[in-house]
C-alpha cells in the first residue's frame, strides 16, 4: 500500500472522508470534521500507524495531505509503490 493510500485510510477513519474524494491537495475547509479536534485525532492515528511522535511544529504544518506526506517522507517513512 502506498503512503497516500495509507493516508486516505486515516482520513476516512478520522473525518469520514470517502476514499474517492481523497486528494493530496485537500485543505481543511474542504473536509467536514477537519477542525482542531479532528486534526488531533488524525495526528494520533498517524502516530499509531507510522509509529512516530510528531512535534507541535510538524502538527501545525499538516494543513493538507500533501504536506503530511512530505513530513512523513522527511521522517523516513518509505513510500511503497502500489505495483
Amino acid at each position: 500500500m502506498t503512503l497516500a493510500e495509507r493516508l486516505s485510510n486515516i482520513f476516512f477513519n478520522a473525518f469520514g472522508l470517502e476514499k474517492e474524494k481523497f486528494s493530496p491537495a485537500l485543505a481543511p475547509e474542504d473536509v467536514a470534521n477537519w477542525d482542531s479536534i479532528g486534526h488531533m485525532n488524525m495526528v494520533m492515528d498517524l502516530e499509531k500507524e507510522f509509529d512516530l511522535r510528531f512535534e507541535v511544529d510538524e502538527i501545525m504544518e499538516m494543513s493538507s495531505p500533501q504536506k503530511i506526506l512530505d513530513i512523513l517522507k522527511a521522517r523516513g517513512v518509505p513510500d511503497r509503490s502500489s505495483g
Binding site: 481543511p28 477542525d35 482542531s36 479536534i37 488531533m40 507541535v56 501545525m60
Partner: peptide, 20 residues
C-alpha cells in the same frame, strides 16, 4: 483554524481552538 500554539506555559492545559 488548525491547532494553535499555546501561551508557552508548561504543560498545555488548554484545548485547541473550537473551530468546527
Amino acid at each position: 483554524c488548525l491547532l494553535k500554539k499555546g501561551t508557552g506555559s508548561e504543560p498545555n492545559t488548554g484545548i485547541p481552538s473550537e473551530n468546527e
